[in-house]
């Protein structure tokens, strides 16, 4: 329910189709992206201590960066709901492919003990 409210609130906000974001927002988003890139590389220096978590951390930071780019640089935050659904559908089907692939790998390893 709260998600639906959130969407409709954004819809009203984005009703003006030529939404102009303040310049400062662009600089803040770019600044955050630069900081996160340095953070990614910083964690990479510790990858021998982190072990398998190194990849998890790297891709979690990448996901945050991707969200920033999509929401503000690509203006999806202020775009129509239909456009967000169209783009989101790409990710949904990609997640499906990832999910089925991981299940396949997992079951092969548990049954045959090799992939």
């Amino acid at each position: 329910m709260s998600a639906a409210n959130h969407n409709s609130a954004n819809d009203n906000h984005g009703h003006d189709e030529h939404h102009i974001m303040p310049l400062a927002t662009y600089y803040k988003v770019a600044g955050a992206l630069f900081v996160l890139t340095f953070l990614t590389v910083g964690f990479h220096q510790l990858h021998e201590f982190l072990g398998p978590f190194a990849a998890l951390i790297a891709f979690s930071i990448a996901a945050v960066k991707a969200f920033l780019v999509m929401a503000w640089f690509m203006h999806l935050k202020y775009d129509k709901l239909s456009n967000r659904i169209i783009f989101g559908a790409g990710f949904v089907f990609l997640a499906l492919l990832f999910g089925i692939t991981i299940m396949d790998i997992y079951t092969r390893i548990t049954v045959n003990s090799v992939l």
């Binding site: 456009n83 169209i86 783009f87 790409g90 089907f93 492919l97």
Partner: peptide, 24 residues
């Protein structure tokens, strides 16, 4: 805009396929 976003969805699927292949 709708056309561009449809195109972007196909881009996600194209690169996504390569990422899944890399994972396997």
């Amino acid at each position: 805009k709708e056309g561009i976003w449809l195109f972007m969805a196909t881009e996600i699927l194209m690169f996504g396929g390569l990422f899944v292949g890399y994972l396997i």
